[in-house]
Amino acid sequence: MKKFKLLIALFLTLTVTISCKNDKSNTDMVVYQCPMQCEGNKTYTDAESCPVCKMDLKAIDQEPDKVLNNQEISDESIFNLTNNWKTEEGGAIQLEDLKGKTLVMVMIYTTCKAACPRLVADMRNIEAQVPKENLKDLQFVLVSIDPKNDTPERLKAFAEENLMDDEHWTFLQGTESGVREFANVLAVKYKQISPIDFSHSNIISVFNPQGELVHQQEGLGVDNNETVQAILELTNK
């Protein structure tokens, strides 16, 4: 047993050396899991008790799995980002959990009155041009620029209001640093100019199932033909 512990400790030191995500001073979100793993790997965002065995949920770090999985994705993949996100359904995910589907991503915030309704409409237009049978291989992801205000509840309400509550729509709330990092990968620029208002670039990005950037369209109400073509090429494979 002693040896075993030592081994674990060694292994952990190794993982910590590779990534310093364990540093508790950073703002990454903590997720919780039943210590008995009654529901397999299911995680929760709050420290409640397990609905099956009623044991208190324990905070976990998903890092070890990710380190192993990293070997399968390319250098260019956005799945190299290991920040934690919350979905509009309250689930906790990392970008890699979206692996395997073609991703259409855009950054918005729900209180936005000017450009975002247009961006959302652009996303819907793109969706409308994709045949129904392709939708199962496709995930439309709307990432909030405003993680402070756009809680999962708010995002859920927004999704319902905009009739974007189907399986293939996902809304994400991250941390401020996580959102900044994500924006940097997409080359999206944004700036908070008042407590509820942001300036931001209007970019819709398409990623292949391995998380590599395939196409970007910039601007509002622009011709989305190329974007749709890129999506069709990926989902018809």
Binding site: C20, D23, K24
Partner: peptide
């Protein structure tokens, strides 16, 4: 158990850093 260990290790490691 595992998580506690990890926590300790990471704290130790941070201070070492």
């Amino acid at each position: 158990m595992k998580t506690i260990l990890r926590l300790i290790m990471s704290v130790l490691f941070t201070s070492y850093l």
